[in-house]
Simulated scan of single mutants.
Amino acid sequence: MSPLREAKPKVVVCRSLGPAMPLLAQQADIDLVVWSEDRSCPRPWLLENIPGAAGVIVLLGDKVDEEFVRAAGPGLKVVSTMSVGYEHIDLPLMARHNIRVGYTPDVLTEAVADITIMLALMAGRNDNNVYSTVKNGDWARPNFAWSPFKLCGPQLSTTLSSPTRTAGFLGFGRIAQATLARLVGFGVTHALYTGNPASSNSSVRDEELKTRHRLQALERVDVDRLARESDILFVLTPGGAGTYHLVDEAFLRKMKPLSLLVNTSRGSVVDSDALAKALKENWIWGAGLDVVEGEPLITEDHPLVKEPRCVIVPHIGSATFETRLDMATRAVENLFAGLFGRDMPAELRV
């Protein structure tokens, strides 16, 4: 009599990973279950299909909580999220159940840094106003008259009248440092940042970055000084309770009248109502947002959508073909490592 064959580990994927799906489909030693429709995985479908799962690939909208773990059962070994953010995962719960968690940092750094610069340029050069001037046909109308300061905004690069430019970073991780590298070409001369308490080697890192980018200054400062001195403020800090509404009315009132605010991290860090008020009352010049608190339920009636000097794009920071493929591939690699007891390329230590 032949020995019983060991059952294949069950893997549930909450969304098709597009060109990365063959990495899963070709894996003969797993039992694969996929939500294949081009929309978010419904919660009832997920709870119905994860019982007995050893591994699950999730996205930002898939909440990994007590209900999720209870439905999966005791055999769940790994949750792999195709995201750098992990607010949707209850990490203490994962630790209690010895469930490994994979995520996808690093691979989206360059794409998000690119769009961070794009939003700074769009916000400074009045993108909403200038685009609509052409789109609505106003440019061609007889009553459209050129004037020396019509449609002007603050310049990102240095000029004769403004020989210094200070970039401020709320958070100074990988994406912030990649953004700083891009800003050097615009002539940024000073960089300030704030974030978690400086690590033991941060001074060495800062000196190296200052020398490499030929900056006049690179300093870790408190939040008040960051607000007061930044010409362009980049919000690049993680979300969560510790950074909720860190950029509030008090913070915005300290900023320069011609300053720009760019947020490509988490919408919850910026108080939307306070930012709308700051733009309306000219405390700051403009804002460029890839993320907004409450997204995707951001309608044409949202106070920030109504502000002409606020540019909003729908959370597309990592939306390049190359980066999304890298993220999906990393999510699959993390999953397999968790299933088969190997080191993950990117594991959250829970």
Score class of each variant (00 low, 15 high):
residue 160 L to E: 13
residue 162 S to E: 15
residue 162 S to N: 14
residue 163 P to V: 12
residue 164 T to V: 11
residue 165 R to H: 13
residue 165 R to M: 15
residue 168 G to F: 02
residue 169 F to L: 08
residue 169 F to K: 01
residue 170 L to R: 00
residue 172 F to W: 05
residue 173 G to P: 04
residue 173 G to L: 08
residue 175 I to V: 15
residue 176 A to T: 07
residue 177 Q to N: 11
residue 179 T to G: 06
residue 180 L to D: 01
residue 181 A to C: 14
residue 182 R to P: 09
residue 182 R to K: 15
residue 183 L to N: 06
residue 187 G to M: 08
residue 187 G to A: 09
residue 187 G to K: 00
residue 189 T to V: 12
residue 190 H to S: 09
residue 190 H to A: 00
residue 190 H to Y: 07
residue 191 A to L: 13
residue 191 A to Y: 09
residue 192 L to I: 07
residue 192 L to T: 00
residue 193 Y to T: 01
residue 193 Y to L: 09
residue 195 G to S: 08
residue 196 N to I: 08
residue 197 P to L: 11
residue 200 S to A: 15
residue 200 S to K: 14
residue 200 S to D: 14
residue 203 S to R: 10
residue 203 S to E: 15
residue 204 V to W: 03
residue 204 V to F: 09
residue 205 R to E: 14
residue 206 D to Y: 01
residue 206 D to R: 10
residue 206 D to L: 04
residue 206 D to W: 02
residue 210 K to D: 12
residue 211 T to W: 06
residue 212 R to A: 15
residue 213 H to R: 04
residue 214 R to Q: 15
residue 214 R to A: 13
residue 215 L to R: 06
residue 215 L to H: 09
residue 215 L to A: 05
residue 217 A to N: 01
residue 218 L to K: 00
residue 219 E to R: 10
residue 219 E to K: 08
residue 221 V to G: 00
residue 223 V to W: 00
residue 223 V to F: 14
residue 225 R to G: 07
residue 226 L to F: 05
residue 227 A to S: 10
residue 228 R to Q: 15
residue 228 R to I: 00
residue 229 E to A: 11
residue 231 D to N: 11
residue 234 F to I: 12
residue 235 V to Q: 05
residue 237 T to G: 07
residue 237 T to C: 15
residue 237 T to R: 03
residue 237 T to D: 04
residue 239 G to D: 05
residue 240 G to Y: 03
residue 240 G to I: 09
residue 241 A to L: 09
residue 242 G to P: 02
residue 242 G to T: 08
residue 243 T to C: 12
residue 243 T to I: 07
residue 244 Y to W: 13
residue 245 H to Q: 13
residue 246 L to S: 12
residue 247 V to L: 05
residue 249 E to C: 13
residue 252 L to A: 09
residue 253 R to D: 09
residue 253 R to C: 13
residue 253 R to Y: 09
residue 256 K to Y: 03
residue 258 L to W: 10
residue 258 L to Q: 13
residue 261 L to P: 09
residue 262 V to Q: 02
residue 264 T to M: 11
residue 264 T to Q: 05
residue 265 S to T: 01
residue 265 S to F: 01
residue 269 V to P: 04
residue 270 V to G: 03
residue 273 D to I: 07
residue 274 A to L: 11
residue 274 A to E: 06
residue 274 A to R: 08
residue 275 L to F: 00
residue 276 A to Q: 07
residue 278 A to I: 05
residue 278 A to Q: 01
residue 282 N to W: 06
residue 282 N to Y: 03
residue 283 W to A: 14
residue 284 I to W: 00
residue 285 W to C: 10
residue 287 A to L: 04
residue 290 D to A: 06
residue 290 D to C: 13
residue 291 V to Y: 04
residue 291 V to N: 04
residue 294 G to L: 03
residue 294 G to C: 10
residue 295 E to M: 10
residue 296 P to A: 13
residue 296 P to Y: 10
residue 297 L to G: 03
residue 298 I to D: 12
residue 298 I to H: 00
residue 299 T to S: 15
residue 300 E to Y: 07
residue 300 E to I: 08
residue 301 D to F: 05
